[in-house]
């Protein structure tokens, strides 16, 4: 059963990415387009994710679709032991499109193979979250005017951070230079360094995070250093404040620099950064709406004028 599901950012070509971003731009101009009148979207959140779910459901509503679904597996038949396959088959009887978040890696790929209707992956465990990557790309394009030849600094948890891995993969089309800034324990995994070398993507690595390290950055992509990732809590206490961005650190930064963060942030971006015009994380989240409207229309094969 071949349909136009969106499972992994790695499935998208350069051309496809650019055309989706262009469509997202149209939705930014006018987000309220009733292109999905009469359609039903199944919003299946086997794992809670308020931010992503609200963004997708808002996108569906602004397109004029109706939304059915659940926001927690505890309220679905999964809690009675129903298999993923059975839930997907049941919902695909009702819905024209399934948007799903699941804690198991590969769940969305599997769902897309068994479901007669298209599936959009809204996150499958630590694996993929393509709509997040697309909104990151949209934010970069919008603030820099291009995706080409940028210096992108990734800061914080580069080991488990799925958003930074997907961004790395997606940016391979656009000749970036990466700078990996993380504590020793949360280094970029070897497979991604191999990926960079194979694709001739230059990168630097450091454990230092200070004003001079970020002086040449176009994009500063901050992530949360999570306490639960550390086996040694002493280590965590030592590093938790080393990867904290303050307004003072931005004094010598480039005028076009923008700060991105997939959110939620805890303390890795000080509140005094919020008022700096280079802070872009809240608009970044807003861009998620336009990108998701574009993704939904694309998998349903709907042209956007």
């Amino acid at each position: 059963m071949k349909n136009k599901s969106l499972v992994s950012i790695n499935d998208l070509s350069r051309e496809k990415i650019l055309s989706l971003l262009e469509t997202a731009g149209k939705f930014e101009e006018n987000p309220n387009r009733r292109l999905l009148e009469g359609k039903v979207i199944g919003s299946l959140f086997f794992e809670p994710s308020t931010r992503t779910r609200l963004s997708f459901e808002t996108a569906a509503n602004r397109l004029g679709a109706r939304v059915i679904g659940f926001s927690d597996a505890a309220t679905s038949s999964a809690s009675k032991g129903e298999t993923l396959k059975d839930t997907i088959m049941m919902v695909s009887n009702y819905a024209d499109l399934i948007v799903m978040r699941h804690h198991l890696e590969g769940a969305a790929r599997y769902a897309s193979e068994i479901s007669p209707c298209p599936v959009i992956n809204a996150g499958d465990g630590a694996n993929q979250h393509p709509s997040q990557t697309m909104l990151d790309l949209y934010s970069i394009l919008k603030t820099q005017g291009t995706l080409e030849n940028l210096h992108i600094h990734l800061v914080g948890d580069l080991k488990y951070g799925r958003t930074v891995h997907s961004l790395l993969f997606a940016m391979r089309h656009f000749n970036p230079t990466f700078h990996f800034i993380s504590p020793e324990e949360l280094h970029m995994p070897e497979e991604y360094r191999v990926f960079c070398r194979k694709n001739n993507i230059p990168f630097t690595e450091t454990t230092e995070f200070n004003e001079s390290i970020i002086a040449n950055a176009d994009i500063l992509y901050m992530t949360r250093v999570q306490r639960e990732r550390f086996s040694d809590l002493m280590e965590y206490e030592k590093v938790k404040n080393c990867y904290r961005l303050t307004n003072a650190m931005l004094a010598g930064s480039k005028p076009n620099l923008r700060i991105l963060h997939p959110l939620p942030r805890i303390n890795e971006i000080a509140y005094d950064v919020d008022d700096n015009p280079k802070a872009y994380y809240f608009q970044q989240a807003q861009n998620g709406l336009y990108v998701r409207e574009a993704l939904i229309c694309d998998v349903l094969g709907i042209e956007v004028e």
Partner: peptide, 12 residues
């Protein structure tokens, strides 16, 4: 080998 992989948790 990934315990969180869907193939280890679904009959597939």
């Amino acid at each position: 080998p990934n315990p969180k992989c869907v193939t280890n948790n679904e009959p597939m």
